[in-house]
């Protein structure tokens, strides 16, 4: 009996220590902070008392649940995700290729600099309208996210190549390293450090701009279309639910990209 009560007391002490530690610097504190903001949001929506102006977290959760039981919701998420991912990959590949060509051929760099400056300075909304006219709304998210990603990757890749130490380049050239070895062991480590943050930032930008383009172009079965429909029906809870999905999607995508980059750095 005594042993049992002693172990129960020990268990209580251990639990309280773990909770205190967690509160100090761990998960518990993060959860409490999130709960605080959710309560503040709920309080504000109760105060406003108008679900069109400000839907609360509870209403938004209900809206999300009612959306989640429809196949249209999941198809919208899937198509938006696939289209933006494709755009991101296209922007990444073309940015890397063009940067390599610019690094190797000065004339190519001179040719490509004006269009890249134009891409960077034209507002996304203008591009959206041009793409709708030329290619229709279905490929909109892909083209726009590619156009947003491309210049960022191009510039960072090029600066990574240019920052590669001439001493290792000379060594690789004199020992006649194979192209693949030069790329892997001399250029890649330098380029990766330059590309790392650009890839992470542009992955987030791809989702933001891709979904913004969908709101303008309203392709069927897309998050952007869902957001637009929420707007015209003044369904703020639905708007928040769609936004929540977009944020989670972008977050998961960024995490996946970050994981791939970590693997590449370790290789």
């Amino acid at each position: 009996m005594q042993t049992l009560s002693l172990s129960a007391a020990l268990c209580r002490v251990t639990t309280s220590i773990t909770w205190a530690d967690s509160l100090k610097n761990g998960t518990a504190r993060k959860i409490l902070i999130i709960v605080f903001w959710l309560l503040l949001w709920q309080g504000a929506s109760a105060l406003v008392h108008n679900s069109i102006l400000l839907a609360g977290p509870y209403e938004s959760l209900l809206a999300l649940c009612s959306l989640a039981v429809t196949s249209k919701f999941w198809l919208s998420i899937l198509f938006t995700f696939l289209k933006i991912t494709l755009g991101f990959v296209l922007g990444l590949i073309t940015g890397i290729l063009c940067a390599c060509l610019s690094y190797r051929f000065k004339l190519f760099r001179e040719f490509i600099t004006p269009p890249i400056s134009v891409i960077k300075s034209i507002p996304v909304a203008s591009f959206v309208i041009i793409v709708i006219i030329w290619a229709g709304a279905s490929s909109l998210a892909t083209v726009i996210s590619a156009l947003v990603v491309f210049p960022m990757i191009y510039h960072n890749m090029l600066s990574g190549l240019e920052a590669t130490g001439s001493s290792l380049i000379e060594m690789g050239r004199l020992f006649r390293f194979r192209f693949i070895d030069k790329a892997r062991y001399i250029y890649f480590p330098q380029v990766l450090s330059h590309l790392h943050s650009a890839v992470l930032i542009s992955s987030g930008m791809a989702f933001k701009s891709g979904i913004a383009a969908e709101v303008i172009g309203r392709p069927l079965q897309s998050i952007g279309n869902g957001l637009y429909l929420s707007k015209i029906s003044l369904a703020t809870a639905d708007l928040f639910a769609w936004t929540f999905c977009a944020v989670i999607l972008a977050y998961l995508f960024e995490k996946a990209v970050s994981l791939i980059l970590k693997r590449l750095s370790a290789a």
């Binding site: 001493s167 290792l168 000379e170 060594m171 004199l174």
Partner: peptide, 13 residues
């Protein structure tokens, strides 16, 4: 040419 440069030039990793 097969050089040993003045400063070390190896692939660190």
């Amino acid at each position: 040419f097969a050089p040993v440069f003045q400063n070390t030039r190896l692939i660190d990793k």
